[in-house]
Design a protein around this nucleic acid. Structure first.
Lengths: 215, 215, 215, 215
DNA sequence: CATGAATGAGTATTCATTCAT
DNA sequence: TATGAATGAATACTCATTCAT
């Protein structure tokens, strides 16, 4: 008798989160008020707090959810045995939600720099994504898809930069960005595959080698 | 809004803009209130409206100023007869203002997607920057620094993606990003030197070089 | 509000009242919310209204209960055949609950001035207490413990003033108040023993002195 | 040009405080909302915060003001060369504002137990009042109006208890309280003047006396 | 040019209470 | 008997902006 229906509760929670997402897409992370969210969700202002302690809790849940989704997609890509480039290609293109979704992502990034609570969430997920990328690259190395001597950590960071950069230009100018995507893809290929001329001589600390990064 | 002494007026205006910038860096584009700005600028709330019709006008002026600065820097670089890579290198690295400055840039980008007024400003400047880049690349071609067959518009867009991507990772994880910057630089070199149409072709210039990263 | 098992119902009611009292002591009469009370009582917000029609009903019940307790204590004192001074002495000292309990009493007194419903309750109990005191004094007269000519109604009011005054100083400054209590007790003795009509007369019983207090 | 008219500012501030006091008298310290206060003062909700940082700041200012008034009255009394009893007599009677004013005083006392900020204010003023009383009593001793051996600190505390007790009964039952006031006055006289029988032998620590107080 | 008084809609959040289950 | 979903008015407080001086 304690919890009559935790399933229903969670369902409503997700419903509200959906409404909140629509509001944030429409009005921005700071621009959407609790009133707007309640109206969108079709609930009373007080009722919102039955599901979330705080407006920030909604934002946090949303960021977390979004990042989890990205993580899952990457993970799914890695397990799908497709080539790394094919797996990452969609990330180099626009988001499904379009410009608004990307604007929201930038809102979130900016917010995570100012609100330490969200900074933690975002940072932890960034780390998670980089780990996935590293794993993906390592697997790529074992298949010969990725240059063996590549410093995977640094490569992962670089890939993230490519992904984010692609998103920015996609947001600002989708048309031009579309044309640039194949180029970005070629840069990605180049990053993964660069043939090393100084191949013969690899000293333990790899003097003339490529993509050597040290933590 | 009448100005008796236009010089002094403009000076004060810039002073206020400086104060506003400090506030925006501190509290975000939406987070800084006019009250905060007035306090920082040492003026009364009413007086603010002698210099700006609206809070948004401050934001617009600030965005405009910031973009003009970037444009000028690029222009200065092009005229300094340095190589393209050298000119663009600083853009691949962190901003002077640090993470806060980058967070603010993302605030601005997000805002420009939602506020059409600012969208216009940002778009026009984006176009300006791309034109500068194109010009820069064309000049590079004439010097043999840039592959002749490169589609300059597309290359410019790609460069902008690299620049933005670098900023994002620099904001989120300055340490790792520092290591990735040389790699991004190598990708830039590759972009300029490679005939991108011939997919993944053999780059004759990628000799001792590519993607060597070292902290 | 229907009660199937009146005994159990009343038991639960008292349980809730206890929880409410703890909340009121902690957060004040206005400061404690129904939510806080429900949490403390371990029941759901809706369930509270099976036992009380209104938040005010809880307050009323609590005031009533508290006053009944005081009344009973006084009655018990009177029947215990102890001297009046001994019976009243504890009332001149601090409350068991300490400062919080006294603060709550003052909350209640203030509330009773503004909420007529509670005013009635408090007034009726005040009258009850005065009657008890009068009865007590009359019995004291019959034993020669109380001056025969004393106006008992007035004396009872005065005693109530002493009791309340003691509580105030005990709440505000328990340390100093502790030293003043014996003095108040002497004033009580003086009140009972002196024919008050003869203004400032020579008190034959004030032998070994009054009001000598030491810091 | 800095401050156009600090006098006007202070005047308005006092005006608002007056309105707030009326609200607190009407609805209680916790019961009066900022909206109610603004309406009573005839200002907009936002404007209130031009004069006070916080609702609590209003309460604090009000408590402080009220206590200062009491302090001044006592001081005026002491300097007016009237007898102590005459000076204190009005304090034993009802407040000018009637029951509501007293209810508010009890609200304040209760609040000062829960809000440390106000606790400080109230405590400091309580100390101030006790010091005035002590001074008053010392002066009385020099005039022979007060028994020489009286412990002035303890006597002051006792007097405060009488004053507060008088207020409580005045609030709860003004009619009966009116009759009791002369008795309280006699108790006060008794407290101040009690002739010590064990007068000859005053050991430093007052052995055989009565009203020996010890914590 | 400059002040600060003034506004009123808007902010997130809390509240006592009701109701379907 | 008991739950927790749901309400909507109320809470203290902030905001960009206007205006008389």
């Amino acid at each position: 008798m304690r919890k009559l229906d935790p399933v229903k509760h969670e369902k409503k929670r997700q419903e509200i989160l959906g409404a909140a997402m629509r509001c944030f897409l429409r009005s921005g992370l700071k621009g959407a008020s609790t009133a707007e969210i309640c109206a969108e969700a079709g609930i009373s202002p007080g009722h919102l707090y039955h599901y979330f302690d705080t407006r920030d809790a909604i934002v946090a849940a949303l960021i977390e959810g979004r990042l989890e989704k990205v993580t899952e997609q990457l993970k799914a890509g890695i397990q799908g045995a497709r080539s790394i480039v094919e797996t990452l290609a969609p990330e180099l293109e626009g988001q499904p939600g379009g410009a608004a979704a990307m604007a929201l992502i930038f809102d979130m990034m900016a917010e995570s720099k100012r609100n330490p609570e969200m900074g933690k969430i975002v940072n932890s997920h960034n780390r998670g994504i980089r780990e996935i990328l590293v794993e993906m690259l390592r697997y790529g190395q074992s298949r010969g898809e990725v240059e063996a001597k590549l410093d995977l950590e640094v490569a992962a960071t670089t890939i993230m930069a490519l992904m984010h950069g692609a998103k920015v230009v996609a947001m600002q100018n989708p048309k031009e960005a579309g044309k640039a995507m194949p180029v970005l893809r070629q840069l990605l290929v180049h990053l993964l595959m660069t043939p090393m001329e100084s191949a013969g001589a690899e000293p333990p600390r790899a003097k003339k080698t490529v993509a050597r990064a040290r933590s």
